[in-house]
Write a protein that binds this DNA or RNA. Sequence first.
DNA 1: CTGAAAGCGCTTACAG
DNA 2: CTGAAAGCGCTTACAG
Lengths: 347, 347
Amino acid sequence: MRDGRTERRAVTIADVAAMGGVSTATVSRALSEPAQLRTGTLARVTAAVQQSGYRPNIAARTLRAGRAMLALVVVPDIANSFFSDVLRGIEDELSRHHYGLLIGNLNNGRAREAQIVDVVRAGQVDGVLLLNGRIPHGGGQSLTQTGVPAVAVCETVEGALFPQVEVCNREAAREAVAHLAALGHRRLAYVTGPARNVLERERQAGFREGLAAAGLDGACVLPGDFTFAAGAAAATVLLAQEPRPTAVFAANDEMAIGLMKTAWRAGLEVPRDLSVIGFDGIEFADYVQPTLTTFRQPRRELGQRGAALLVRAMLGEVIPAYEARLRLPATLLVRDSTGPAPKENTA
Amino acid sequence: MRDGRTERRAVTIADVAAMGGVSTATVSRALSEPAQLRTGTLARVTAAVQQSGYRPNIAARTLRAGRAMLALVVVPDIANSFFSDVLRGIEDELSRHHYGLLIGNLNNGRAREAQIVDVVRAGQVDGVLLLNGRIPHGGGQSLTQTGVPAVAVCETVEGALFPQVEVCNREAAREAVAHLAALGHRRLAYVTGPARNVLERERQAGFREGLAAAGLDGACVLPGDFTFAAGAAAATVLLAQEPRPTAVFAANDEMAIGLMKTAWRAGLEVPRDLSVIGFDGIEFADYVQPTLTTFRQPRRELGQRGAALLVRAMLGEVIPAYEARLRLPATLLVRDSTGPAPKENTA
DNA sequence: CTGAAAGCGCTTACAG
DNA sequence: CTGAAAGCGCTTACAG
C-alpha cells in the first residue's frame, strides 16, 4: 500500500497517542476541546504533542469533519492593485478565525468561472467571497446552487440573497457634483466605467442625481473602462467640446489621472482650466501633480466586514436581513485638482 | 455517525460506480488514467459522471494520494501592487498544471511565518514559492526542514539550495549610472531600500560598480525603505546638499516618484535641474509628470518561471544546478525624467 | 473523563 | 481490463 513518495513520514495522531499512553480520541480532544480533559491527561498529551512536533493532517480533518477551514475569494483581476487592500482586510479577518484564504482569479474574464465552481463542488472551501459582481457559473451550475455560503464585497450582485458589503457609490457621486457645483462649475463631464459594471451604474446614477440637485440639466458623458488609457482617450474627446466643460468627474482614479496627464500635455492647467475629481483614493492619487481630489474607499474595512459576515455564515449562522446589506461611506478628499470655475469670457 | 451539517450530501464516487455498474476503482481510473479502460466502460462511466455531476472530493484524494495539488506563495505584503503581476504569472503557470494557489501573507513582518510553516507541516501544500527573500521559521523549525520543495522568486535567499528566479538587479543598477554619466552627470545620489533587503544590496552594489566604471569616486547615499514617503524625505535631504547632485537613482519607483514630487514642490524642475531614475516599471511611472525613466521588470515572467520550476520539483524532479538560478534582464525605459546635466556656473 | 471503533471519500497494489 | 479491499489520518457518536 505504500505509494511512490518516499519522504520521511510525518508524525500522526497515533504516534502522539502512543507517546502519551492515551487513545487517539483523547489526543484529538486535547487539541479541539481541552477543557473536557482531566488536567493530568491534558498535560501528558500536550507534552507528547510538543515533543513530537505533531501537526494534524488537514486533509484527514477536512474529510472527517466535513469542513475545510478555507474560504475562496473570487477576484476579477489579481493584478489590479485596488483589490490588494481589500484582500488584506479579508485575510486578517479570516485568519483571526483560523480560516485560510484561497484565491480564485478570473483574469477579467469568465472562462475561469467554471474552475471556481469546481473548487467549491469539490468541497475544498467552506465559503466564498465574491469581489467580481457576478455569481460564477460553470458546468451547467451556478456557484450558489452548490449551497456553500457566499458574501459579495465591493461589487454587489443584483437580486442576490446572500449578504453584501459595498461603499455608498451613489451618495459619493452626488457629493462629487455638489463639490464641483459649489466651486461654481456649471458645465460638467463624467467619464464612465464599463457599461455593465455595477459600480459604474451607481456612480453614474449618483452623478445624474447630483446634476439635478444642482439645477444642471445636462453634462458631457465620456465612455471609459477604468484604465489609465481610457482616461487619456476621454481627455482627447473632452478637449474637442465647445464650450468645453470646466470640471470632470471620473468613475475611478486611474481614469482621472490618465485624463489629467493628457490635459496637461494639451496645455491645460489643472485646476485653473479644468477641475478633476476621481474615485477610490488609490495611494498614487496623492503623488500626482496636482494631487487628485477623490473619494477614499475603506478598502480594508470592506474586506474585513465581508469576511466577518462570511465566517458567521460558514459557522452555520443565518445572517438576518438587516445585517445582510452593509453600506460603508466613501470620504471626499479635497486636494489640489479641484478649484473654482474659470471666469467666463463669453457672456 | 452523522455530524451536525445537514447540507444535501454531495455525489460520491460510490454513487457514480453504482450508476455505471462498475467498481469505484474503475471510476477513479476513468478520471485519472482513461487510456487504461475499455472504450465501452469508459463511455459508461463518463456518462454517469456527467449525469450525476460528480466532482471528486479533494480532501479524500489528498489524504489518500499524499498530494494536495496546491502550492503556497509566501508574499511579504499582499497590499503591495508589485506582487500582483508576479502572482498572476504564478497563478497562470500553476493552474496550467492543475495546481491551486494558496496565499500566505506576511504583512511585512515575521510574526506570521509560524503559520506558514504550520500550513506546510499540516500537509496542505505540495510546494512553496517564496517572494519574501527569507526562509520562514516557526515552532522551532524552518520551512526547508519540512522537506517540501521550495523556489524563491524576485527576492533571492542567500545560500539556499533550492532554485531561485531573479532579475539582474546589479547589472541594471550599473546601467542606470552609465545612462546618467552619458548624459554628463557627475554628482549622483542613490536612494536606498531597507538595509537588509537583498534587492537593495544588489542595486547599491551595482550603483557603486557603475560609479567606478564611470570614473566617479563618490556619491550621496540617502536612506530609504521603498515607500513614497521615504522618497519625499530623501528629496529634502538631497535639496540641502551643497553642491547639489544633479541626478538621482532611487532603488524603486515609489521612492523616485515621492522624490520627484517633493523636488517639484521645492521649485526644482525635472529633468532640467535634476534627473531622476527609478526601478521596477510600475504602471504609474508612466503617468507621473514628467514620466519616469526606470527599469521594467518582467514580473509576470518571473512568477511564471518560478512556478514552472516549482511544478517540476513538486512532481519529484530534481532541478539541476544549471537551471536552479534564473536571472532575467531588467530593461531600461528612457522617459522624460532624465536629461542632460545642467551647465555648471561655478568653475 | 476516556476508549474502541466506525467511517469520511478517495486511490492503488494486488489478484485475476 | 476490472474488482475487492485496504487504508490514508483524522473526528465523533456511543458506551462505560
